[in-house]
Design a protein around this nucleic acid. Structure first.
Lengths: 150, 150
DNA sequence: AACAATTAAGTTGTGCACAATTTAAATTAT
DNA sequence: ATAATTTAAATTGTGCACAACTTAATTGTT
């Protein structure tokens, strides 16, 4: 019998479950910060570079306005960010950290260490895995390029 | 400045985007089969072993009844599966392929080949990546075990 | 046998994720 | 300059994903 459709042989399934289970690990760690996982990703971007517009945020996280608009609205309600129109281009919405959102970074500093501890992974393996994941994404993007060329 | 919160350094983010982008790749491939990605996963399980109950399906895919109940309902509407009560345990709902659902397997046989082609990945690399993902999941499960012991 | 605890599905509510559409602002072309 | 096109964000609708809860069947205990 053909084995190609076996669930466990699908790289997509392994990626999908690994991602889901790792995200599950984050939930209790992020709960004290009052953040969901996706909201945490947005905060990571803003802590790196405050005052991004939605489109920039989206291209960084591969999320469109349909996901980001309501997500940012929730971050505003919590009080971590605020919105304003860009002065040079009235279409753009600039998202900025509030004082509370900036301050949260201190608390978040411990998150990566906690996750590493839970994964119990050494530096070399971690780097190797990161490279593999980057490679998968590169292959996906390369395919996208090839498609676009035709 | 501390780099630990840099988005690209987070393995969770790389997993999350890799998974999302690979799923995106499946969408146009699965569209002719009239399946979403999650529905495809359920079909993969049923093609392997028909007549599973919801709990078994869920433990195989790491999904709970809150996700599976409505998902299976949609598969019934499409006409690929049907539900019935287990005779030995009236709590259990057994999900079985219809003729149309069984027949769909023939069409699906080409899906993995198409995806591999798009990823443009050789056998050895593919296996190495699968092992990495399995290892990540093992580490996550190991942590779960350690937690439960306390 | 009768009651308590557990288990299987289903339901409700929240929050992504994304396609498709809408609205308004900015660019470009004529 | 004005019309056509493009772009940014928001909105609408569908389908996961999961926590919390409900209902009904089964199992365990006394």
């Amino acid at each position: 019998m053909d084995q190609s459709l076996k669930l466990e042989h699908q790289i997509c399934f392994q990626l999908y479950t690994a991602s889901k289970e790792l995200t599950r690990l984050y939930r209790p760690i992020l709960a004290p910060l009052n953040l969901t996982y996706s909201q945490y990703l947005v905060m990571l971007v803003l802590w790196e570079e405050d005052g991004m517009d939605l489109r920039q945020l989206g291209s960084r996280l591969t999320l469109d306005s349909g996901t980001l608009s309501p997500l940012v609205k929730r971050l505003i309600q919590i009080g971590y960010v605020e919105k304003s129109r860009a002065t040079d281009d009235e279409r753009k919405i600039v998202v900025r950290l509030t004082e509370s959102g900036s301050a949260l970074r201190e608390q978040a500093l411990d998150v990566p260490r906690q996750v590493s501890g839970m994964l119990n992974i050494d530096e070399a393996t971690y780097i190797a895995y990161m490279e593999m994941l980057t490679d998968i994404k590169t292959r996906l993007h390369d395919f996208g390029e090839r498609q676009r060329e035709q």
